[in-house]
């Protein structure tokens, strides 16, 4: 093998390395880019039940009297927040286009003040974009004093263009603590064991 052959080889190897490194960096960045892309994708398509968490205005469209849709409410406690969340009714029947108000109560069962937030989800995913929330406690974080009870409304409509095959829409709310704003959990938890289990 001559000197020049070896140099050509070396140059080839170097080129391969740089291209590989570029591909590696690109793919690593791609993995992180997928996080916002995924979010945008889910929001645009409504997959995932990821709903818009900003208020929308009431649209005065004609109520579709011919159609009845069942809307169910599920409330859940995520871990780490000693609150209880209840809804006045588990289920309502309504027409597309109609505006409905439902009340939810939050009670802090611990001995300290804490911040929480209810994260919404919609099922089936195809209904997500047709749920129009005018006012929702899920738009913002809540603060509850020790033992405080708070009643908050959800005002919403189902749009008339709700896909015809959807007869039941389920709205799920999961309670989570707001990082950094709650008091250290130990005090709350230690004082109120039963509350946490609820």
């Amino acid at each position: 093998m001559t000197q020049s052959d070896r140099e050509i080889r070396q140059a080839g190897v170097r080129r391969t390395i740089w291209r590989s490194v570029a591909a590696l960096v690109g793919m690593f960045a791609f993995a992180f880019a997928l996080v916002p892309l995924y979010d945008v994708f889910c929001r645009v398509t409504g997959i995932n039940g990821a709903v818009d968490t900003t208020a929308q205005s009431i649209v005065h469209e004609e109520v579709d009297e011919s159609r009845m849709v069942t809307v169910q409410f599920i409330t859940r406690n995520g871990s780490g927040l000693p609150w209880r969340m209840e809804v006045e009714t588990r289920q309502v029947r309504m027409h597309p286009g109609q505006t409905t108000e439902v009340h939810f109560t939050f009670s802090n069962q611990s001995g300290g003040e804490s911040w929480g937030r209810a994260v919404p989800g919609v099922s089936p995913a195809t209904a997500t974009r047709h749920v129009r929330k005018v006012s929702c406690f899920c738009f913002e974080e809540q603060k509850l004093q020790a033992g405080e009870r708070l009643e908050l409304p959800l005002v919403f409509q189902l749009a008339r263009d709700l896909p015809p095959e959807v007869n039941t829409v389920t709205l799920v709310y999961t309670l989570y603590p707001v990082e950094g704003k709650s008091e250290p959990l130990q005090t709350a938890g230690a004082q109120n064991k039963e509350g946490e289990e609820a």
Partner: peptide, 13 residues
């Protein structure tokens, strides 16, 4: 080369 960086990304997250 295409997927090991994605694994690295996931475990970094």
């Amino acid at each position: 080369i295409a997927v090991m960086p994605v694994l690295a990304g996931v475990i970094t997250m």
